[in-house]
Computed example of a mutant assay.
Amino acid sequence: MGQGRLGWDEYATGWARLHGGFDPRKAGRLVRGWLRVSYVIGRGLARVRIPPAAVTFAGLLLCVSVPLLADRPALAAVFVLLAAMADSADGATAVVSGRATRLGYLYDSLADRLGEAAWLVAFWLVGAPGMLVVAAAGLSWLHEYVRARVVAAGMRDIGAVTVGERPTRVAVAFLGLLLAGAAEAVQTDLPAGTITVVAAVWVLLALVGLLQLLAAVHRVLR
């Protein structure tokens, strides 16, 4: 099959193999819609032979731009959304073009962690306390570390979809910066308080998600 000609059903099957067996066709409407948009973008990129690594790098550059735009939080939120789409599109490009590799998966995961760190730096620059930012980063990193280690221990299925997954972090970063931008239009000192509340929500969701994941791992591996 030629570049960019993989059908949706074939793509969904290939995507599921790379994501713990989770079938995107059975996801909720919002997630399914997001993944279908990613598929369309990935199919277009594959047709013009843009490599997945280039899309990953572009997404990382978008993430790095977010803290540089901390004085304009609403615009920073747009860059978070664009980076998240690039993150989905690089995997879609890899699957559609038949260029999914373990090395590409490693680089994609590394770019995700660096990107989230950049978003949290933006939170700090807008006004979130450093301790909250560090806690959010640490708990999110632990979530991904535990998932990676249990795979190494022999747990092959997804185990649990928690409230602390990557899509949740994307949504919190996007909405947090967007709300901070809206608060800035009301009063100049409101963004710091707004982003502090959102950072606390990030920490709470990350903690609950980590506990959910650990509970699922305990059930499976004991």
Rank of each mutant, 00 (worst) to 15 (best):
G115M: 07
S88I: 04
A92N: 08
G42D: 04
E116Y: 09
G127H: 07
V96K: 03
G115A: 08
D87R: 05
L103M: 09
C63P: 02
R102E: 14
S97Y: 14
C63L: 04
A83R: 09
W119V: 05
F57A: 09
A122Y: 06
V134Y: 09
A46R: 00
G91T: 07
G104V: 08
A76P: 07
L114G: 08
L81R: 07
V40A: 02
A58H: 10
A111Q: 14
T93W: 01
A100L: 05
G127A: 15
L61G: 12
P52I: 07
A76V: 10
M131Q: 08
D108Y: 00
G91A: 13
V48R: 13
W124L: 13
A100P: 02
P52Q: 08
R102V: 09
L68P: 10
S38C: 12
L75R: 12
A117T: 04
P52W: 09
R99C: 00
D87C: 06
A136E: 06
F79S: 10
L35E: 10
A89S: 13
W124P: 02
G42R: 01
F79T: 05
A46S: 15
M85E: 06
F123R: 00
P52C: 13
A94S: 08
L68I: 01
V80N: 07
A70L: 12
T56G: 01
A86Q: 06
G42I: 02
V37Y: 06
L81C: 12
S109I: 01
A136K: 13
I41R: 13
Y39A: 14
V37P: 10
R49V: 05
I50C: 01
A136N: 08
R43F: 02
V37H: 02
G104Y: 07
T101V: 00
V121E: 11
S109D: 04
G91H: 11
L75Q: 05
A89K: 15
V96A: 04
V55L: 10
T101I: 03
M131G: 03
L62Y: 11
S97F: 12
T101G: 00
P51I: 07
L81T: 09
G127D: 04
M85D: 03
A54M: 11
A53I: 04
T93S: 12
L69M: 13
L132D: 00
V95Q: 03
A100Y: 01
G91R: 12
V66W: 10
P73E: 14
S97W: 10
V78M: 14
A77D: 13
F57Q: 07
V95K: 15
L60Q: 05
S65D: 07
G42W: 01
L35R: 13
D112Q: 09
L45T: 11
L69S: 08
L132R: 11
L106H: 15
A84N: 07
A54W: 07
R43S: 14
L125W: 05
A46V: 06
L61R: 10
I41P: 03
L60S: 13
V48H: 00
